[in-house]
Amino acid sequence: MFRIPCPFCGERDEHEFVFGGQAHIARPEPAGQVSDREWAEYLFFRDNPKGVHLERWQHRHGCRQWFNIARHTVSHEILAVYRLDEAIPDMNREETV
């Protein structure tokens, strides 16, 4: 059961959050001119790394804000937490949270 440091509220239990899938999925624009293949990749293709995964979470039963988490998919260690308007932190320099 994760302990998630919400960037707005502080550390809370996983129960209060919902998972929103991979972060930084850019919608191809203008969508009307995108090929079927490119559109299908946007809709259906996601990374499945053994390692750091950047993903969206929402503090639904708290501040209801969405934010990003960098999570290691083996240890489930949360390496970084950052707001949607923040850049992806440099994970090499980042101390564990």
Partner: peptide, 13 residues
């Protein structure tokens, strides 16, 4: 409501 929130925060800030 949750879906609209996600759109406004994440996709169309």
């Amino acid at each position: 409501h949750a879906w609209m929130e996600a759109l406004l925060q994440g996709d169309w800030p």
